[in-house]
Computed example of a mutant assay.
Amino acid sequence: MTDLHGKTLIITGATGNLGQVLARALSERGARLALVGRDPTTLATTRQQLPAQSEVATFVADLLNPQEVAAMVQGAVKRFGSIHALINAQGGFAMGPRIQSTSDADWDFMMDLNLRTVFNTARALIPTLLASGNGRIVNVSARAATRGVAGMAPYCASKAAVITLTESLADELKHDGITVNCVLPGTLDTPQNRAAMPDQDHDRWVSLEALADVILFLVSDASRAVTGAAIPVYGRS
């Protein structure tokens, strides 16, 4: 089992399906956690679901607001002293119309939710990681990043951009002891996806726990030689 005692990790999107599973898995392995979300009530609920002995702090921040992101990072550093890793689990999906009917708002929503949040958090945390001389950044892209699909152009483009941003960050930071990777999950087994696709074979989907296991590897010392990777996590889908 991955041992993360003494490591502090920031998880964005901590109140989402994946964020909650990650928080539990990381806390069980001894990590100290800075959980980031927009709603203090759901953040508090997420915290309460973790083992009582877990060392956890919660931070309310709008990841589209650079000032709030910077304040969150400063707060986490003040609370824990150092940061080992950032997991960008914030993101989301929405179907849309064909390109000619796509509004600026539709396009910007996906780009903001899936890409700008990653950019803002990485930009804010990198100086701290550089000062410590090591660190891990893990971003969540998607299988949809590898192939454009009708009605999903903003989503596919935003997730593809996450891969490119990951590669650029990895290249910039590869001599500084900082690794940057991303995961490309297929269809995740979530309550929302089950409700939207009740007739699908859910056993073929990717469990949140399975995806979390890959992310745990990427934030651990075992992944020290891996950077710039976009790792498929497709299950049997």
Score class of each variant (00 low, 15 high):
91 G>K: 01
165 L>P: 02
129 L>Y: 05
150 A>Q: 10
109 F>E: 13
217 F>I: 04
236 R>M: 15
199 D>S: 08
105 A>L: 10
43 L>R: 02
64 L>W: 07
98 R>P: 01
127 P>L: 12
126 I>H: 01
236 R>N: 11
205 W>H: 09
157 A>L: 03
208 L>V: 06
217 F>N: 10
81 G>F: 07
46 T>I: 07
65 N>V: 14
120 N>I: 09
164 T>K: 10
86 L>A: 09
58 T>R: 04
35 L>P: 00
136 R>P: 00
168 S>D: 14
91 G>T: 08
227 T>K: 03
29 R>S: 09
20 Q>E: 12
31 A>H: 04
182 C>V: 07
75 G>Y: 06
53 Q>P: 01
129 L>W: 06
93 F>W: 14
21 V>H: 00
73 V>K: 04
3 D>I: 08
36 V>A: 08
207 S>H: 12
46 T>H: 07
215 I>K: 02
144 A>R: 00
219 V>P: 01
196 A>W: 09
64 L>V: 05
94 A>V: 13
210 A>D: 07
19 G>C: 12
117 T>Q: 03
61 A>Q: 09
107 W>L: 11
126 I>A: 09
52 A>E: 14
77 V>C: 11
88 N>F: 00
136 R>Y: 13
49 Q>P: 03
174 K>H: 14
37 G>N: 00
155 Y>G: 12
96 G>F: 05
211 L>V: 11
33 L>I: 04
204 R>H: 11
143 R>K: 15
106 D>Y: 08
115 L>T: 03
118 V>T: 08
160 A>M: 12
164 T>R: 12
208 L>C: 01
225 A>R: 15
4 L>A: 08
78 K>R: 15
233 V>N: 10
80 F>I: 06
89 A>D: 02
138 V>T: 06
12 T>R: 01
62 D>P: 14
181 N>S: 10
125 L>R: 04
214 V>H: 10
117 T>Y: 03
73 V>L: 01
133 G>Q: 03
194 R>V: 10
43 L>A: 12
15 T>F: 10
147 R>G: 08
39 D>L: 06
168 S>A: 15
157 A>W: 00
183 V>L: 07
146 T>W: 13
42 T>G: 00
52 A>C: 04
187 T>A: 14
237 S>M: 15
125 L>D: 02
